[in-house]
Structure formats: C-alpha cells, structure tokens
Design a protein around this nucleic acid. Structure first.
Length: 493
RNA sequence: CGGGCCGUGGCGCAGCCUGGUAGCGCGCUUGCUUGGGGUGCAAGAGGUCCCGGGUUCAAAUCCCGGCGGCCCGACCA
C-alpha cells in the first residue's frame, strides 16, 4: 500500500472532524453518505437522495404504524390554500406571513384570489372539517396527512431547515377539551417512543413557553433532543389548538344534549428534520452511523477471495448466509462488486452508516466462521452456524448502546444554574461549529419578557419539562418571582 | 434580508493579482495486477471556467448586474 495514495484519498474524501468544525462535519457526513444535497437551482431546497429517502421511509413506516394503531387514518388536502383562509386566525397569519410563498398567476392570468403554498394545513383542513362534522357521533375525527410544505426561510441547512420539507401533520377534532388534551399528549408520546426506541435519540418531553408556541395554538408541546455539539433540536411538536380554529372555521357539532358546540382540535407533526437529528446524535468522524432498527440496510456482507475457486466457494457461502438472515427479516446487502478491494468496500458501507459488516473469506470458510464489524465497535469472530441469532443479538446490543451513549451525553451536558449570569456563562462559548452547548435547567417564568431576555444570550427556553426531574419550585432568574419548576434553556437549531 | 467568504471535468483544488492554446490530485472507462481496512501499473474519456452584460485585437482572469452555496447576524418551526 502506498502512503501517498492513502493520504491523497484521505485528503479528497475526508470528513471534517467534529472537533474542528461541527457544522462542516455535518454537511460532509450528508454528502459522503449520499443522503441529500442542495437543490442548487432552487434556492433553499434540497434533493433527498435514495439513501436519505430510504431513512425517511423507515421513519414514516414506524410512525404510520403507530398512527394507525391509535386510530388515525391518512388523507390528503390541497397544496394550495386560499390566502383568505390563512388570515382568519389572527395569530396564525401573523406567525406565518413572513414565510409564505404565494401563487399570484395561474393559466397566464392574475388570480382573483391568490393561493399560498401551504406552510401547514390547519386552515384548509379546518374548512373541510366544518363540513364533515355535524354531530357528536362524527367525533373524534382523527386524520393524518403525509405531505410537503413550504416556508420561505432566509437561512437553510440540509434537513434541519429547508424551504420545502416533508412531514406529516395530524389534525384531530374532539368533543371535549379533555379528550383533545389527551390526544395531544398521546401523540407526543408516540414521537418520543419513535425517537428513543427506534432512532435511539433520547428526548425531553415538554411544553413550549407562550412566546415559543405555535401560532394559533393554546399550548404547544415538544420533544427536544440534544445534538453532539450540545445544541438543542426541536424534533417534534404537538399542539392543543383549543377552539381557536374551530371558531374561525365554524367547526360545530351538536352534542348529546342537543346544543351546538365548537370542536376541540389538535395538530401534531414531525418532519425530515428528524434525519438531521439522527445524524447529529450518532454519527462519527468516519461518517454516518445508523441505529439498527432504523437502518434501511442492517448488515452488509463483504466477501473476500483471490482465486476463482475461492471466489465461487466464498460467494456461495455468503449468499447462503445472506438468505438465512433475510428470511429472518433482516435487511441484508451482499457487496459482490468486482474490482473493488475489501478495504474500499468497508469504507463505502461505513460512510453510509450500515450498522454491521460481515466479512467472509477463505480462512472463515475453512473454520466455519465469519468476522463481524460493528459500525460503532471492533471486529469479532462469530460462528457461521446460527448466524441469524448472533446478528440479531449484535444489532440489539448496538441499538441499546447507541441509546445509552446518547443518554449519557445528554445527562453529562445538562447542568443547573440559579442566576442569569450563570446561565450566560454556561452558554457563552457554545456555537454550532465548535460545540460546547449545554442544557441549562433554570427557573424561568413563562413570560415573553423572559424569553426576550434570554434571546440576548442567543438562547431560548426549549421547553418546560413535563416531568420535573429537578428540585421543584424556585425563584425566576429574571423576574425574581416564584415559579413552579426549572425549564430547559439552551442554544438551538 | 444585511455582512464576510466562495463558484474552474463527477469531487477537492491550482491558475486570476500582472488578460494570450485550461491544469493537478482523486474518481470514472479499458486491460493487466491486487484482494483479511481506501492495491499497483499502463492507456483513455470527460470542461458552456455559475449566468448575463461591458472593456479589449483577445476574458477563467479586469468592470457591472444577477443566480446559487457556506459562515455570522437578524428572522423563523
């Protein structure tokens, strides 16, 4: 092996180390893993490449199954929304108007009523719910939509914030406020479940402050995750809409007593932003790392051989083992490409985040074994007999190890502070590029003035945790008033 | 949307200051070789130098305007 050749390759395809520049590292991982790239001819948009889309499809599958299991049905509403719809809910239009893209000309003629490209669908769905809901027997109405939305962003980052993105939006209507509130938390828990148990991304479930809540909601809930640089990522939201939209869209039903009532609504969503969170939770300086439960390819075989007779014997065994694993329900790739050395194949799959590489050559053939290389660990030998069970066990332990590592990082970088100055000091050196971010648990009043004050630190209240894991009530570090619990303050994406 | 940096074969870059035949590395193709962590050798293919205008005998290079990307800021889910 030539040293110059190696260093040339390294120089060309290197992934910037996290310690050097985390933001650059993030982009390098995406590019090297071929997950996505800037659309280039469409400002702020991205092309999600097949490998990136496969991850989205896995996330979709996990979520969709849970939506169905909780009684929801999928439907689809128009991409274009009459502009007047957005304007009906005052806070909603105020929140979204700066980021709307509007269609003004169609068929060569100016439109009498302009259409906005949906930034979210509460309004148009509200319009139809008003028609569909008449009786308490029509409730609850539990619908989800898989869709794209457009929000005109001034600054974009692949997956984390793009002008157009993919998401799901659940929209439900209920007969009582309590039912709606239960729904909001039920779906928040679905998000937390997928994040932690499938994506191995621990999250803090919480409530948003009044200043941070969704435009038009009564209360917004969220799951907040911590990235490897310590910055917070809002990974999902669930909103209690109260009767705000039902009042302006006239969504009324006759209750069992015969009187008309406005429906109680919720909406909840997660987006392709989750992929960004996934990347920044597990990946390393070698590239993407995917948790086994989410990986589109869970293991890849790398056959090793020299002579033709070795090749046929090795490939026969590899194909036999691959078939065994596939019949066990695993997603398996056999890399039998000619003209590539095993080493280059290792790098190829490693950069793409495949959890397990299975190496099999003449020596293994003779000894009836294989070599397993976990994406996050060392090589180990394993018997070819009973490989399915071995691989399942390895993938299971990798899944839990990734979650444990992420949880540990979250715990180690969560600190408490009892004064504004301490919060400021703790977050002073945190940046997206250099890391150093923390979750600071502090007592802060839910008051827009306090949110504004924290903004001076380029930080925000990420959430008011639903489960207070700290010390209960205390004195607000800004107003000095008594508040019921600590909140999470952090710099965020 | 403001400030900074950037845009040259697929990728990473040099060339630009001082205008004069478009280069290098990687990748790609073919053949041989090699194969247990980015094999080696050889021969090839591949470029509207982001776009438009201007200056000039001549523009990748100088000037103006746009488009796009990255970072910072403001804004935002």
């Amino acid at each position: 092996m030539s040293k110059t050749a190696t260093s040339n390759k390294a120089q060309n395809e290197k992934i910037t180390p996290r310690a050097q520049d985390f933001a650059r590292w993030y982009q390098d991982v995406i590019m090297q893993a071929e997950l996505a790239e800037p659309a280039e001819v469409v400002k702020g948009c991205m092309v999600i490449r097949p490998h990136g889309y496969a991850i989205w499809e896995r996330i979709q599958a996990e979520l969709d199954a849970r939506f169905k299991a909780t009684g929801h049905k999928n439907a689809y509403f128009p991409l274009l929304i009459p502009e007047s719809f957005l304007k009906r809910e005052a806070e909603h239009v105020e929140g979204f108007s700066p980021e709307l893209a509007v269609v003004t000309i169609a068929g060569g003629e100016p439109l009498t009523e302009r259409y906005v490209i949906r930034p979210t669908s509460e309004t148009i769905i509200g319009h139809f719910y008003a028609r569909w809901i008449n009786s308490w027997r029509d409730l609850p109405l539990l619908i989800n939509q898989w869709a794209n939305v457009v929000r005109w962003e001034l600054r974009t980052r692949l997956f984390l914030r793009t002008t157009e993105f993919l998401w799901q939006e659940g929209h439900t209507a209920h007969a009582t406020e309590q039912e709606a509130q239960e729904e909001v938390l039920r779906m928040l828990n679905v998000y937390a479940d997928v994040a932690e148990n499938v994506m191995a991304m621990p999250v803090i479930c919480g409530r948003k402050t009044r200043a941070e809540k969704f435009a038009g909601a009564v209360t917004s809930y969220c799951i907040e995750a911590m990235m490897q640089n310590g910055l917070a990522l809002q990974a999902g939201t669930s909103h209690d809409l109260g009767q705000n939209f039902s009042k302006v869209f006239d969504i009324k039903f006759q209750n069992q007593a015969g009187t008309l009532e406005y429906a109680w609504q919720t909406s909840w969503g997660v987006s392709t932003r989750l992929i960004g969170g996934l990347i920044m939770t597990h990946s390393d300086d070698k590239g993407l790392v995917l948790p086994p439960k989410l990986a589109p390819i869970q293991a890849a075989f790398i056959p090793i051989y020299r002579k033709d007779e070795e090749r046929s014997a090795v490939l026969e065994k590899v194909n036999q083992l691959a078939a065994e694993l596939k019949s066990g329900g695993l997603q398996i790739e056999v890399d039998d490409r000619e003209g590539f050395t095993p080493g280059s194949k290792f790098f190829h799959w490693e950069q793409r985040g495949v959890p397990l590489l299975i190496e099999l050559g003449p020596r293994d053939l003779a000894s009836g074994s294989v070599v397993l290389k976990r994406r996050d660990g060392q090589k180990q030998n394993a018997s070819a007999a009973g490989l399915l069970e071995t691989v399942r066990a390895v993938l299971d332990s990798m899944q839990s190890d990734l979650l444990a590592a992420a949880k540990k990082r979250l715990q180690e970088n969560t600190v408490t502070a009892n004064s504004f100055e301490d919060v400021a000091a703790l977050l002073a050196n945190a940046t997206a590029e250099k890391g150093g971010g923390k979750f600071v648990a502090a007592h802060v009043k839910d008051d827009p003035a306090c949110d504004a004050k924290l903004k001076e630190l380029k930080a925000s209240v990420r959430c008011i945790p639903l489960q207070d894991e700290y010390d209960g009530p205390g004195t607000c570090i800004i107003t000095g008033e008594s508040v019921p619990q600590r909140v999470i303050v952090a710099k965020a994406y």
